[in-house]
């Protein structure tokens, strides 16, 4: 019986670790994609778009598999709901990142040169928020006491991303370099979208801190 337990457990631990790694990679691809777009490296950008799309499909399959196994093997009855909730909300991070790159690829907004560095910086803070979130999730599974530390870092990076978002928006509406109002709105839309990744990371982190309190013995 112990052996069966161990095999099932090992398999699921591996699945969950893979899933978390997948989310982590999506954050990095998102950042690299935005950077490539802002640097006019469209070939690399399209490559990142393809990569994140594949990752998103894989993540969905993995999540479904983990969900089925958790119920089929009757594991962690106490925190099963929380773990599934966590994995589902974590999926939102990958979805959001994928959608933004896809929309950039479809709509190809014209970003003025003086804002490009700001966009990269915004994407960097969104990515950092995701990266800290991944650390918090890993801690939730293995080192419950350090979850709060990482969650605080996520909140910090989200706040920084908010500040940059606001400053870019101000620049967009104060400048004469973007002549048409519709273009200003289009640019603002992408600022909000890129910042959205950090917002999603923040909402997952907030849920996670509650799950962590529940998990403490």
């Amino acid at each position: 019986m112990t052996k069966i337990f161990n095999n099932k457990t090992k398999e699921l631990v591996k699945n969950i670790d893979c899933y978390i790694e997948n989310v982590s990679n999506s954050g990095l691809i998102f950042y690299n994609g935005i950077k490539a777009y802002m640097n006019n490296d469209i070939e690399k950008f399209e490559l990142e778009c393809q990569r994140i799309s594949i990752l998103e499909t894989e993540a969905d399959d993995m999540r479904r598999d983990i969900k089925h196994k958790l119920y089929r093997y009757m594991l962690i009855p106490d925190s099963r709901g929380d773990v599934l909730g966590l994995l589902e909300t974590l999926d939102g991070v990958v979805d959001t990142a994928e959608k933004i790159l896809e929309q950039l690829s479809i709509e190809t907004p014209l970003i003025p040169d003086f804002l490009r560095e700001n966009f990269i910086e915004l994407a960097e803070f969104s990515y950092k928020a995701v990266d800290e979130l991944i650390m918090a999730v890993k801690a939730f599974f293995r080192e419950i006491n350090s979850v709060d530390e990482h969650v605080n870092q996520v909140l910090f990076f989200e706040h920084e991303a908010d500040n940059i978002e606001e400053s870019i928006k101000r620049k967009i509406f104060q400048t004469d370099k973007i002549p048409r109002f519709s273009k200003k709105l289009h640019t603002k839309y992408f600022v909000e979208k890129i910042a959205l990744v950090s917002d999603v990371a923040e909402s997952v982190a907030e849920r996670l801190s509650i799950y962590a309190i529940k998990r403490r013995i």
């Binding site: 457990t9 631990v13 969950i16 594991l75 962690i76 925190s79 939730f140 599974f141 293995r142 080192e143």
Partner: peptide, 10 residues
């Protein structure tokens, strides 16, 4: 011990 939640469960 930093045991994984699932391992801790079993």
């Amino acid at each position: 011990s930093k045991i994984h939640l699932l391992r801790l469960d079993s």
